[in-house]
């Protein structure tokens, strides 16, 4: 059941206390993870490791931050969230279900013939999907154009987000866009990078090391923050900070999110990390059990914290 608050205005949760926002984001992240597992199970695979890892980022974006009308994904005044990493589509579908743009049941059709939810995210198929990603390194350039265009038209309220992967930091086009964004002082642009340390041929540290990231973005003129991308509190604070400084003539923002592939399902967290994580047919039930168990213990923990706070 979708118990998430319906986001309608900028930072829909913004007027609530931080504790409440964190708890709400945690719950949304849990449902996003469950949706990722359900999609993987329906097709016997998919980019499940990535989807579980990025769930907290999407939970904060889609239930705490973005100004959207879930019922009208074409609403002109919405914030734009560009998924350049098409292979992460299952995570975004789950977030769209959480936001209420698509039906939760539709997730089962992930990647199936004739589905509106193809394996690689495409704007021509899915309501709420802003661009067709998949050829990596396109997103930030398109985001620069959108941010320029919105400012050009005086629509300073709207923000443009682009979710990138750390693999996309290899592409020259990403850095062309980064240089341009600071030249044009696009304070209305927020790049969010899923630093999961993995790409197709292996760990990023072996394929093409990308560090030091904070220094690189800062030297390109960006406002850079690095957070634990599986910690909703750190994410909320970072997104808030970017939004508070979203003067369209300021510095563009990057939130570098260190995440763990398979997060929330211990047997996947500890499994050898692979770009395309293999999960046997009889393991999906166990994955869901582990996810549920983790959530129960989280709930206990956060109850204790609340008592401490009081």
């Amino acid at each position: 059941m979708n118990t998430a608050p319906q986001p309608a205005a900028r930072a829909p949760m913004g007027d609530r206390g931080l504790d409440v926002r964190i708890k709400s984001a945690q719950e949304a992240a849990h449902r996003i993870r469950l949706g990722v597992l359900e999609q993987g199970e329906a097709q016997g695979g998919g980019y499940v490791g990535q989807g579980l890892g990025v769930a907290d980022v999407l939970a904060v974006a889609y239930t705490d931050q973005l100004r959207l009308d879930p019922a009208d994904p074409e609403w002109e005044d919405r914030d734009r969230f560009l998924l350049s990493i098409g292979h992460y589509a299952l995570a975004l579908y789950s977030a769209l279900a959480e936001a209420g743009t698509i039906e939760r049941e539709e997730l089962e059709s992930y990647a199936a013939d004739g589905s509106r939810l193809p394996m690689s995210g495409m704007s021509t198929y899915t309501p709420g999907m802003e661009i067709s990603g998949g050829s990596l390194g396109h997103g930030l350039g398109v985001a620069v154009g959108m941010a320029l265009s919105l400012r050009h038209q005086g629509r300073e309220e709207q923000l443009v987000y682009n979710l990138l992967s750390d693999g996309e930091l290899d592409e020259g086009a990403t850095w062309e866009a980064a240089m341009s964004a600071s030249h044009f002082q696009l304070g209305n642009l927020v790049a969010v990078v899923d630093m999961n340390g993995m790409q197709a041929d292996g760990p990023t540290a072996e394929v093409l090391p990308t560090e030091p990231q904070v220094e690189r973005w800062e030297s390109f003129g960006w406002h850079a923050q690095r957070v634990d991308g599986n910690d909703p509190e750190e994410l909320i604070r970072a997104f808030d900070a970017a939004r508070e400084q979203a003067d369209a003539t300021g510095r563009p923002h990057v939130i570098l999110c260190d995440t763990v592939m398979g997060k929330g399902v211990p047997m996947l967290e500890s499994r050898e990390k692979l770009h395309f994580m293999k999960i046997a047919d009889d393991e999906w039930g166990l994955c869901k059990e582990q996810l549920a168990a983790g959530r129960a213990s989280d709930a206990n923990e956060s109850d204790e914290t609340e008592e401490d706070v009081r």
Partner: peptide, 21 residues
């Protein structure tokens, strides 16, 4: 932004026909 004319509805049973194959 139209959706594909071949799109399925949630009611239809999904089949394992995915892009992975």
């Amino acid at each position: 932004m139209s959706t594909s004319s071949t799109s399925t509805t949630a009611a239809q049973a999904p089949k394992r026909s995915a892009a992975m194959i």
